[in-house]
Every structure is written in structure tokens, then in C-alpha cells.
Design a protein around this nucleic acid. Structure first.
Length: 475
RNA sequence: GCCCCCAUCGUCUAGUGGCCUAGGACGCCGGCCUCUCACGCCGGAAACAGGGGUUCGACUCCCCUUGGGGGUACCA
């Protein structure tokens, strides 16, 4: 019989959902989907001092935005503290754990001694075999795991392969704090077991923990889940991800105008590959994803590639979908106030009309709005420096000559507008660019824009003529 | 310090002993297209960290060095 796959994403709510966490969630989600299993969500909030409500919301919102849905209700680890405590006490009763009364000062001294002696483990086992009757009064003990002191612990990792750790290098970790709350090392094992997790897919930073946890599983007589430790994501400079580059919350990526589908495609390729392929639909990902194709070396975060992918997905997203996302994003933009004031229904209708040519030119939604700005601004436009330079006397006289031609157009269609402008240029022996560039400057206030005929058409006859006159009459 | 993991173009990666004159993608450079900017298309520069083995033959296997990362908490 093959057990159904159950994975879990287990963030600690001490900050936002950063990019590494997002990728871990994605891999867990994909693996569950690929195997027809489920992905559970567990909030690891046993550190009461550092866990916050805001962080929980940020993580849930981040996952939802990325469209990584979890199965069942999230489990809050702290709510299971009684269960964890019970297991710790069982371990003590079975002689597999013990109470330790050492003070922080004694512990500190042990650490320094261990370092001086080039040893990896520091706890010296003072209370491991000492008679509990010697317990000093007035000190609340912690409960420590009685880890095997000889031999080795072998982890069979689906990504990293076989990893061997000498047991002498692992000391007796704390299971229950002196205040009676469980530590991560205990909670994680008990919860993964109780939740019937079959595959633990998480960051490489937990690799050594896997050995410690394996020992606890064995002491409890429980089956050890399959481990898969993902290489970490580094910043562009190869160093640890910091706030300056990449270690932003996923909501920051949303605000920068990235599409969830693009971010997912980018993240999955950080570590996972399928031959030479780069672009994957979610359906393909679910079909192809497997643990065996995950590489073992860490990756650097590269915004340029994310942008490229995002541009690809913007181009292949429907105009209506893009329009919806743009309207949702608007309030988060720096210049949101001005844009929002101008953003009436008729403006959005123009944006929709221009969308096919606009989306060819944008790598992010923020850029998309910026390229559409000429549709939001009100007459008279103030051309930017480069555009103003284009509108010299000669150019303005060419525009002046074009005015009556455009006025004469009865049906303002893309075809008619284009034919009229081309005919005007030809009749006066101007290269098209001689007319198009000044026109672009007058119509958009910039030197770069969608095709000039698209611009003319989308603006509409009255607005287009008005904008040209505004510039021509300045002289 | 000690323990563990990692190492192919600038970046993400393909490669699982001969198919490699090392492939793709992003980025970069040049060209085409062209009303601008993009898109698209064509072309180019660009890598097996170093040293030892093993083998008829190593990018691929082993060891060492170097470099990077992680862990070493009454954090997770």
C-alpha cells in the first residue's frame, strides 16, 4: 500500500513571508499536487515573545496571493503545547529524557570550554546521570533529551543524499523550557507525526536538525518521514539574503508589479529543472515536478530574470485580467493619488483599448501603468525634456499642417488614422518619422510610446486634436 | 574553533564515464524589423575553482586544497 502524500509548510510568524519561504511553500505545494496528496499549513508560534498576529496575516496573505492554497485549517503549534509537554514527560518516564537544573551561567561556561577543546557539542551531561534527588531548590528545570552519545545518525535525504552525523557532535537538546513550554525541536517532531506528514520539504538550514529530530523519532518509536532539504537562496552578491536585495516579503513583489504566476515560475527554476525548459504552466509543473530533479547547490536571486519572465507572462495574460490587476494595484503605487483622481471609467476604457500594444512594452504592472500614464493625464500636457526638444519650430509646423488632415477624418478608426497620416507625410515628402516623433511628443509628452497610430486612435479625435493644438498654439 | 552541506558561462541551469568542439535561458554586445520604445528574428563574447588520484578515457567517481553557505540557543 502506498500512503497518501502529506506535506506541510511550517513558517514561524516572526516576520513576513520572504522569498525563501515562498519557494519552500511552492515546492511543498507542488509535490503534494504532483502526488495527489495534501499540503497542510502549520504556524510555528512556540516562541511567544517573537510571534506576532501581523506576521501570521502577512504569511497567509502572501500564500493566498501566490495562489498556494493549503488544505484544512492552519494548525497553530502553540495550541498543542499540552500534547508536546505530555510527550516530553513520557520520555522522562521512559528514561529517554531528564531534568536539568543548570543555570545560564553554567551553560555559558560549558560552551566556552567546548570551544576551547574543539568540540562541537557543548552540554557536558551534568544532570544526565545525576540523581534527581540532588535537585537544587527554587530552580525550575528544563527537560533535556538523552541523545545517543556514540555511533552515528544517518539521514536519507531526497535532495542531499545520505548525510552522516556523529552522535558525539550532537548534545542533549532542550525539549521543554524551564517555563514548561516546548521547544521547536520537540514540537516539530510531535506535530509532524500527529499530522501524519509523509514528506518534510524545507530549507537546508534544517539539515543538521534532521539528525537531532531523527533521534527523537527513534526514541519515540515513530516512523521517520522522508526528508528533502532545499538549498538556500542567496542575494545577488552570494551572501545571505538581506532586506537590501531580495529578502523582501512577497507583498513587496506584488507592489513591484510582479504576477504570481511569474514569481512561481521563477522560483521553481531556482533549484528545480526539467531539461532545458524554462517556461512552465502550473499544470505542467504539477505534472512534471519531483524531488529527484532538485539540485543541491544554492542559487542567487536575480531580478533581471524574474523581470524577463514577468514580461513574458504579462504579454500572455488577457487584457481584461491585466486591467483588473492594474486597478487593484493602483492604490499601492507611489503616485496613486494623482492617477486615481484621473481614473474615470472612460480612462480605463482607453487603457483597455491600448492594452494589446501597452503590454508588449512592460515587464511589470508598475511599468505598464507608467506606459499608460498618457491616458490618465489631462490637457494641456507638459512634455518631458526630450519630448520638448522634439517639438521645435519645424516639427510644430509639420503638426500644424497635419491638423486639418486629421480634422477631416469622419470615421476615427485605426485604419483611417494611419492612412491619413501616411498620406500627409508622403504628399509633403516627409519621412514618416518626421511626423510621427513630434506627434508622439505632443500626444504623450514623451519620446517613447506605443505605435503612434494606436495612440491617435485610442485617444479619440477630439482629445488628439486638442493635444496637438495645445502644442502648436504655444508658438 | 568544531560539525554538516555545496562548487559548470556574470546569473539560473542541462550534463549522471566516451554522444562535449560543454547545450539552453536571463543579462550583455552586434545586426534585421521599424514612426519611438518594446516584441520578434538572426549572430557573437562568455564556464567545467585548483591539485592529486581511479580509468583505455573524466564536467561526470575518490581524496586534498581553496572558496561559499548552514548549524553550533531555555529562536524556529
Amino acid at each position: 500500500m502506498t500512503a497518501k502524500v502529506i506535506t506541510r509548510f511550517a513558517p514561524s510568524p516572526t516576520g513576513f513571508l520572504h522569498i525563501g519561504g515562498a519557494r519552500t511553500a511552492l515546492f511543498n505545494w507542488l509535490y503534494a499536487k504532483a502526488k495527489g496528496g495534501r499540503m497542510l499549513l502549520r504556524i510555528e508560534d512556540t516562541d511567544r515573545a517573537r510571534s506576532t498576529e501581523g506576521a501570521i496575516d502577512a504569511i497567509l496573505d502572501g500564500l493566498s496571493w501566490l495562489e498556494l492554497n493549503w488544505d484544512e485549517d492552519p494548525i497553530f503549534q502553540y495550541s498543542r503545547a499540552d500534547r508536546h509537554r505530555e510527550i516530553a514527560e513520557t520520555l522522562v518516564a521512559d528514561g529517554k529524557a531528564y531534568k536539568c537544573y543548570c543555570t545560564p551561567e553554567e551553560l555559558q561556561a560549558m560552551r566556552e570550554k567546548a570551544r576551547a577543546e574543539d568540540r562541537a557539542s557543548s552540554y557536558d551531561g551534568t544532570w544526565r546521570n545525576r540523581d534527581p534527588a540532588d535537585a537544587p531548590a527554587g530552580i525550575d528545570p528544563v527537560i533535556r533529551f538523552k541523545a545517543p552519545d556514540a555511533g552515528e545518525t544517518v539521514i536519507e535525504d531526497r535532495v542531499q543524499g545520505q548525510v552522516r552525523v556523529q552522535n558525539k557532535d550532537l548534545d542533549d537538546l532542550i525539549l521543554l523550557r524551564s517555563n514548561g513550554t516546548p521547544t521547536y525541536m520537540l514540537s516539530v517532531v510531535v506535530d509532524d507525526h500527529d499530522m501524519e506528514i509523509t514528506h518534510i520539504i524545507r530549507g537546508d538550514d534544517h539539515l543538521t536538525n534532521a539528525a537531532r529530530q531523527s533521534q527523537i523519532y527513534k526514541a519515540l518509536g515513530w516512523d521517520i518521514p522522508v526528508f528533502a532539504h532545499l538549498p538556500l537562496i542567496h542575494g545577488p552578491d552570494g551572501a545571505k539574503l538581506s532586506k537590501r536585495h531580495g529578502a523582501l516579503g512577497v507583498e513587496a513583489y506584488r507592489a513591484m508589479g510582479y504576477l504570481p504566476v511569474a514569481l512561481r515560475n521563477y522560483l521553481v527554476r531556482l533549484g528545480w529543472s526539467h531539461g532545458d525548459e524554462e517556461i512552465f504552466s502550473t499544470e505542467q509543473l504539477i505534472e512534471l515536478f519531483d524531488l529527484d530533479a532538485i539540485g543541491r547547490s544554492p542559487a542567487r536571486f536575480d531580478f533581471a530574470k524574474l523581470e524577463n519572465l514577468n514580461g513574458h507572462y504579462i504579454r500572455s495574460t488577457s487584457d481584461d485580467d491585466l486591467l483588473t490587476r492594474l486597478r487593484e494595484l493602483l492604490p499601492e503605487l507611489d503616485n496613486s493619488r494623482e492617477l486615481q483622481e484621473a481614473a474615470g471609467d472612460e480612462v480605463w476604457e482607453k487603457v483597455r483599448l491600448a492594452m494589446p500594444s501597452l503590454k508588449e512594452r512592460a515587464k511589470t504592472l508598475v511599468e505598464l501603468i507608467d506606459k499608460a500614464e498618457f491616458l490618465f493625464v489631462k490637457r494641456p500636457l507638459t512634455p518631458d525634456a526630450k519630448a520638448a526638444k522634439l517639438l521645435d519650430a519645424d516639427a510644430l509646423s509639420r503638426l500644424g499642417g497635419l491638423l486639418p488632415v486629421l480634422e477631416k477624418i469622419e470615421v476615427w478608426s485605426l485604419e483611417n488614422v494611419e492612412a491619413a497620416v501616411r498620406a500627409y507625410a508622403e504628399a509633403n515628402e516627409f519621412k514618416l518619422g518626421k511626423v510621427a516623433q513630434p506627434l508622439r511628443a505632443a500626444l504623450t509628452g514623451r519620446t517613447a510610446s506605443p505605435g503612434i497610430f494606436d495612440v491617435l486612435f485610442v485617444l479619440g479625435q477630439d482629445e488628439a486634436l486638442g493635444r496637438i493644438k495645445d502644442q502648436v498654439s504655444k508658438t
